[in-house]
């Protein structure tokens, strides 16, 4: 190429390059916006459909064949029961397992095997846990759990979230510097004192964040609970752990599969309630992370 031709083509090339640059930026922006747009669209559709049905009686009525009388009381209370129990079980077992793996277990084949299993279990579809829960808790331990009860459901959901809780807690424990443990041991602390006074408090915000996020996942689970036997026509509030129950996602599923348009709108209203509750729990997780995360710095 001669110098002249380079000079001639230069403005065209430059324009082309600028256009490619510009369109790539637009493409990336569109990709970003698409998720936001879809989210806003979905929210708008749900609010549009369901907001009209939101009322105090919607929260305090049981489900009904008459849409104007139907409410989500049993589902809401059932969900809260379930999440409360799941939180207790998964924190006790999950944090315990994480502390054992990080602070006690020696790095031998056993620990590696357990670790590998936990990682794999985190990826198992939740419906599989539902089948396990049906066999183990509903049928096998029915004398303890009372069959298709809140307790069975909570234990099943505990299985679902446990791997995630363990992994999140392990990461939080690992983030606590070794020097803190050394300092504690050098001051003649036992392992228990070291874990209790220094490691757990320092790891707590991270652990709580993990627990809350995995619980909010459990909050929206329907599949394993359908198998375990939560059903939608429950017209009472569970009064104990061995009572039958239903939960919000199942109520939503049941209503949306009915032919009448009113029930679909009711489902949308229930989804709104579910979303608000999820937002609250996620907000709590963020709050905890900021509130306690700032105090602990090395």
């Amino acid at each position: 190429m001669t110098a002249a031709s380079t000079q001639n083509s230069a403005p065209r090339q430059r324009r082309w390059r600028r256009r490619v640059d510009q369109s790539f930026e637009w493409f990336c922006m569109a990709a970003t916006l698409s998720s936001v747009v879809i989210l806003i669209g979905m929210l708008w559709a749900i609010i549009h459909e369901g907001a009209g049905w939101l009322s105090w009686s919607f929260l305090t009525n049981y489900t009904s064949v008459h849409p104007e009388k139907a409410g989500i009381l049993s589902a809401l209370v059932g969900s809260l029961w379930l999440i409360g129990l799941t939180a207790v079980f998964s924190v006790v077992v999950g944090v315990g397992a994480a502390v054992y793996l990080e602070e006690y277990a020696r790095d031998i084949w056993f620990k590696r095997l357990v670790q590998l299993n936990i990682s794999n279990l985190a990826g198992v579809p939740s419906i599989v846990y539902g089948i396990l829960g049906l066999v183990l808790f509903v049928r096998g331990l029915s004398s303890v759990t009372g069959g298709r009860s809140v307790l069975s459901g909570a234990l099943t959901l505990t299985l679902v979230v446990l791997p995630i809780v363990i992994i999140a807690s392990q990461e939080a424990l690992r983030a606590v510097p070794k020097t803190i443990r050394q300092a504690s041991y050098a001051l003649a602390a036992t392992r228990w004192q070291t874990v209790w006074h220094h490691v757990l408090p320092a790891a707590m915000p991270g652990m709580m964040t993990g627990v809350i996020l995995s619980l909010s996942r459990a909050f929206g689970e329907a599949a394993p609970l359908i198998i375990v036997g939560a059903w939608a026509q429950v017209r009472f509030v569970p009064s104990g752990m061995r009572d039958e129950f239903t939960v919000l996602p199942i109520q939503i599923f049941e209503w949306s599969s009915r032919p009448q348009a009113e029930f679909r709108e009711l489902a949308a209203a229930a989804i709104l309630v579910l979303l608000v509750m999820l937002l609250c729990t996620n907000g709590l997780a963020v709050f905890l992370r900021y509130r306690y995360g700032r105090k602990v710095k090395w």
Binding site: T179, A183, Y185, L187, A188, K297
Partner: peptide
Amino acid sequence: LLRKRIGMVFQKSNPFP
């Protein structure tokens, strides 16, 4: 009991938070 009789100071100061 042994470590109670022996104090230790590390290279990098490691106060508890």
